[in-house]
């Protein structure tokens, strides 16, 4: 993982932004932010903001891509040009393509698709502002957008990253922590049965550390799950 920092990133148990190791940044979630979409949501973890829109199920063209007994999922993760310090040139990078794929795989197990043969459900995720943990923020937004779209689901999908910084296990890495971390593990899971649907890692950790991070993320993820439920209900409690 990333660069070596000369200075310590965690001083007296506090992180750069004053958080404790197991503290999540301020979370904001809003459902129904894009009127044109069948479902949509905006999710922020600190300065990271993702907006997701779901279109469909709708008939899939060209025909040869259709599945006779199920809907298929298409997913696009995209970063806005102004979402980071150095402007990103529009158009999908290799990184964005890979994240699009793992995001799709993280969401698919939560969906019942067999009722919608020959169709596609398009999930579009835009990272409006990036400060670490963008893919899991995008997954939270997509989970809410799918539920808002009325897609039949087994469960919501919760995303959260964990990692190791200096010698400390931390949760919800911001951009700078991501750059200087020893390791970073983004995770997505279906909370009812703690079924993990996304698990990636880069960096170096011993097996015990990996297991601790996974356990901590599943645990802290309950808070993210509660926020998702609150946001969905809020749409109808205005």
């Amino acid at each position: 993982m990333g660069m070596k920092s000369k200075e310590k990133m965690i001083v007296e148990g506090k992180r750069l932004d004053g958080r404790t190791p197991d503290e999540i940044r301020e979370i904001e979630m809003k459902v129904g932010v894009i009127p044109n979409a069948n479902g949509s949501a905006r999710v922020s973890f600190g300065r990271t903001t993702a907006v997701a829109a779901v279109y469909g199920p709708r008939i899939l063209h060209p025909r040869r891509l259709q599945e006779p007994d199920t809907a298929i999922i298409r997913c696009r993760y995209n970063m806005a040009p102004f979402s980071v310090d150095e402007r990103i040139r529009p158009g999908s990078s290799r990184r964005e393509k890979e994240i699009s794929k793992v995001t799709r795989l993280a969401l698919e197990p939560a969906l019942f698709l067999e009722k919608y043969p020959e169709t596609v459900i398009d999930i579009y995720i835009e990272i409006i502002q990036a400060d670490g943990s963008t893919r899991v923020t995008g997954i939270n937004a997509a989970s809410l957008a799918l539920a808002d779209a009325g897609a039949p689901m087994r469960d919501l999908v919760v995303g959260l990253a964990g990692g190791k910084l200096d010698d400390t296990i931390i949760i919800d890495l911001c951009g700078k922590e991501d750059n200087y971390s020893v390791a970073d593990i983004p995770i997505a899971f279906l909370p009812r049965k703690n079924e993990i649907t996304l698990l990636q890692m880069d960096g170096q950790l011993n097996p015990d550390e990996v297991k601790t991070i996974v356990k901590n993320v599943l645990n802290a993820g309950k808070k993210v799950y509660e926020k998702q439920k609150e946001a969905l209900k809020k749409k109808y409690h205005k």
């Binding site: 009127p35 102004f82 979402s83 409006i128 400060d131």
Partner: peptide, 23 residues
């Protein structure tokens, strides 16, 4: 609206909703 951009604005006219970011 976008802290990481050097300038930004979000304008909604009716249901049309656009963000412009300046780098």
């Amino acid at each position: 609206t976008i802290e990481r951009a050097e300038g930004s604005a979000r304008v909604k006219i009716g249901k049309t909703d656009i963000i412009v970011g300046i780098k």
